[in-house]
Design a protein around this nucleic acid. Sequence first.
DNA 1: ATATAAATAGAACGTTCGCTCTTTTTTTCT
DNA 2: AGAAAAAAAGAGCGAACGTTCTATTTATAT
Lengths: 244, 244
Amino acid sequence: MKKGRTEISAAALTYQEFRNIVEVSMEKICRAVFHENRDSIKIKKEEVAVKNLINIFNTTLELSNTLGFQAMSLRDLSRESGLSMGALYSYFTGKDELAKIIQEQGRRIIGDILKEQVEKGESPRERLQIAIRAHLFLNEVMQKWFYFSFMEARNLSRAEQKLAIESELVTESMFIDIIECGIARGSFRVSNTVLTASTIKAVLQDWYLKRWKYLRRKVSVEEYAEFIISLIESFVMPKEKRAK
Amino acid sequence: MKKGRTEISAAALTYQEFRNIVEVSMEKICRAVFHENRDSIKIKKEEVAVKNLINIFNTTLELSNTLGFQAMSLRDLSRESGLSMGALYSYFTGKDELAKIIQEQGRRIIGDILKEQVEKGESPRERLQIAIRAHLFLNEVMQKWFYFSFMEARNLSRAEQKLAIESELVTESMFIDIIECGIARGSFRVSNTVLTASTIKAVLQDWYLKRWKYLRRKVSVEEYAEFIISLIESFVMPKEKRAK
DNA sequence: ATATAAATAGAACGTTCGCTCTTTTTTTCT
DNA sequence: AGAAAAAAAGAGCGAACGTTCTATTTATAT
C-alpha cells in the first residue's frame, strides 16, 4: 500500500488509470465537436476533422498557457499547428468560437468523469477522499485546460461566463452534499459547510494555478492529494474517528 | 468582543483601520513614482503629476479587471480617465511600462504593510492570526491590484516575472517561519510545513480570485478571516491548545 | 496684460490583427 | 489515368492597435 494512502478508498482510481481515461475522452470529445458543428465546420471527412481538431485544441492550449488567448494570434496558431490560416477557418467560424468550444468540451469531460468517480464511494468519508483525488488528478492531467479556462473566462460572452460560474458552483455543491451527508450520519462536524466546501475548491485549484511551484519543489500530485485529505479531515472529523 | 474573535490578537488592526493605511499609501506611492521616474515622466509639477497618476492607475486597474490588460486599449484608458492619448504618454513611456510600474508599486505597499503588521505579534499563534488577517484585509482593500497582478503576470518581461514569483515565495516564507517557530516552541504540530504554508496562501488568494462568489453569498472579510484561522489552527494545533 | 513655460489634444503613421477569398494541392472515385 | 470533390494555402482587406508629433489650450510669472 502506498504511503499515506488509507485502505478505505481502494476503489478509487490511481493517477495512471486517470491518464488513460482522459486520453480516450479527448478523441471522443473531438468527434462530438465535429458532429455537433457539422454545419459550421467545412470539413467533410470525420477522420481528417478529428485529427486536426485535436491538433488545434492542443496547440491553442499550449500557446494560450504561455501568451494568453488574447495575445495568441491566429497566425501564431497557424505556424505552431502547421495549418494555414485558410485551413484553420475550416474548423471554426472565428477566434471567439474557438475559445467557446474548448471551454464547453472541457467542462463536459470534467463533469462526466467527476460524477462517475464520486458515485463509486459509499461512506461520506470515502466519497470525500475520492472527490479530492479525482479532482486533483483531473487538474493534473488537464492542467492546461483548467488554466486556460480560468484565465480566459473574462473574455467570454455573458452567457458563457454564466455557464463557467455555474460549473464552478456545481462542483462545489458536490462537496457540500458530501459534507452534509457526513454531518447527518454523525461522521463529520463542520462549523460552516459552504465555506468548507469553498475552501476545498480553493486548495484544489492551487494545484493548477501554481504548478510552477509544485514542480519546482517536486511535490507529486499523489502527495498533494494525501496532504489535502489529511488537512480537510482534521477539520471536518473529530480526532477519534480519523484513526485508520 | 467580535464574534469568533479571540482575545489573543487584540493588537491587530481592524479592517477599517486597514483601509485608511492603504488610502494614504496610494498617494505616497504615486509621489514616489513621480520622483523615481522624473526623467521619463514629462510632467514638471508634482501636484499635477500625482493627481493624474492616481487617476491613471485606478482607471487601469478598473479596466484591466474586466477586460484584461491586453484587451484594454490605450484609447479605452484615454476615454475612461478623461486624459488624451498625448497626455497619457506624458506619464509613461509605453503600455508595458505602465503595467510594470503598477506591479512594482503594489508589491512595495504590500510588502511594507505585511511585514510591519506581523512584527506586532509575539507568540507564533498570535503572529499566525495577524498574518492571516492582515493578508486578507490587504486582499480586500487592494483587491483590484491583486487580481491584476495575478492575471497579468504572464505578459511581463522575464525579469519582472522573477520578481513576482520571488514576492509570492517571500510571503510564503513568512508563514513558514511562523509555523517553524511554533513547532520549536511546542505549540504547533505540522506534518509538512511547506505544504501547510502553501495551502494558507491558496485559501487567502481565493478571496480575491473568487470575489464574486463571496459577494454573492454575503461573506464578510472578517468572517472569512475567522473561518480560515479556525481551519488552519485545527490543523496545526493539538486540540487542547486551541481553547481560548 | 503679455510672454513663457507646461500640459493637453487628437490627427497621423506604421504595424498587426481577425477574417475572407481565390488559387493550388491533395484525395477520392470511376 | 483522369475527372470531380475535398482540403489547404496564403495574399489581401479593413479595422484597431501602440506610439509619435505638432498644434492648441491652460497655467504661471513678470
